[in-house]
Write a protein that binds this DNA or RNA. Structure first.
Lengths: 235, 235
DNA sequence: GCCTCACCTTGATCAGGATCAAACTCTACG
DNA sequence: CGTAGAGTTTGATCCTGATCAAGGTGAGGC
């Protein structure tokens, strides 16, 4: 398994560098990402405002808490976690973002990011300057609408997490996270039953409001009950 | 105290009915609500799309989960809670909304409301049809921007709650809620140190992921320690 | 005035998950 | 190959807040 990962990461980086991961018009995430709302001609206009960035390496920051907000970011490949640091210095993971998802919408409100975003693995990102997106939205009603929808969905997602944290046992929380990842994988036409978890136990625990020991115990319990086979991770 | 409340509620209803709580142009919440972003001439255009509704009585629903989404709602006076029913039939309170705040943004995403909204006391509401708001936003960039900001702020607020639920003790949760209400009162130029809590212990407990017993115990503990004097509620 | 019902407070006990502690597994690196 | 260090697993114990149970308070209705 180990060599695979290494090789995959390297290949990935190279492919991205070579192709500049191309263009919204032939990105295979189009059906998930912003273009979903647009006519072909308009995708090009969107494409023109998007800036591709060099791939982030594991641990690199996409932005940090209190950075001034200029753009939102679409994850093209890889995984990003968002987190903030609480008053007493602890980290709180607030979300995981997979390809096709938009990160950074929490920054629109006050002009600065309310949280930091960090790559969990080699990750490539499309930066969408918010000023340009705003202008374009004024001309393309469906883009405005879609963007409102994306934000609204993030609110709904957050509320689901609130419910999860407020009402559910450790077991249910982990099950819910696994299911959520499974669904998001399915949306990208990946297997919903076999996948690698890109985040560490620590991040999972932190996100779910548990300790790493509890998470670990539950994974082994799930495995004992035959629900999950895990190694580097699969349902 | 009891007769006061009754009288207040009745007066409130009458005033609203008489004035139709007027007009965005002379609403004293203008500085908080949508008009904050607009030039005087444009407030009138906003005002024209807003529909005032008859006051809701305690317990009335503003909308219900799965209703088709048509509008967002500004709280003019009173208090609203949002909640959903989990798969196992339990209620989960997801937010409290005070005057000047906008409810219902979670519905934009999928065209239906993801939660129900219910009045905690006599409450008057300005309904803002979302289609009209969208059109107007296409013409008034600052309105579009402000609305993006409002949604973003809701995301940030939800993330704060997530952190609270995930990291904090019962004591910290309650303290945080009281402070949050205090700040929101201050924004409306009400006292930040003396106020009535419009929601029941049950709602507080539910919102904070605690039991009503725990909430009650902590209020009395706070009172013993002299942090709070409570009866119908004041810090 | 009394009864009812909803809401709140207080007490006793229990349990899920945190905390503390230690060993094990990879991966990286010299 | 051996060592270092991060990440993970497992075990023993403790504590916060849930649960169960009972009594108190206040408003409305008859």
């Amino acid at each position: 398994m180990k060599p695979d990962l290494k090789v995959m990461a390297k290949e990935h980086t190279e492919v991205c560098a070579r192709q500049q991961f191309a263009d919204c018009r032939n990105c295979r995430l189009g059906a998930l990402c912003l273009p979903i709302a647009l006519a072909a001609a308009d995708v090009e206009r969107l494409n023109n405002i998007v800036e591709r960035k060099l791939p982030l390496q594991r641990g690199d920051h996409l932005y940090r808490e209190d950075d001034t907000f200029r753009s939102v970011y679409a994850v093209h490949s890889g995984t990003v976690k968002t987190y903030h640091i609480t008053d007493d210095g602890q980290e709180q993971v607030t979300g995981f973002f997979f390809p096709g998802e938009i990160v950074g919408m929490g920054g629109i409100g006050c002009g600065r990011f309310g949280s930091s975003a960090k790559a969990l693995e080699t990750t490539s990102i499309c930066e969408i300057p918010f000023a340009s997106l705003g202008e374009l939205s004024m001309q393309l009603p469906s883009l405005q609408k879609h963007f409102f929808q994306l934000m609204s969905q993030e609110i709904v997602e957050d509320e689901k997490l609130i419910t999860l944290l407020s009402k559910s046992s450790a077991e249910q929380r982990i099950a819910a996270l696994l299911l959520s990842i499974s669904v998001r994988n399915a949306r990208r036409n990946l297997s919903s039953t076999r996948f690698r978890l890109p985040m560490s136990r620590t991040d999972i625990a932190n996100y779910l409001g548990l300790t790493i020991e509890t998470v670990s115990r539950l994974f082994t319990r799930f495995a004992r009950n035959g629900l999950v086979t895990s190694n580097n991770k699969e349902i």
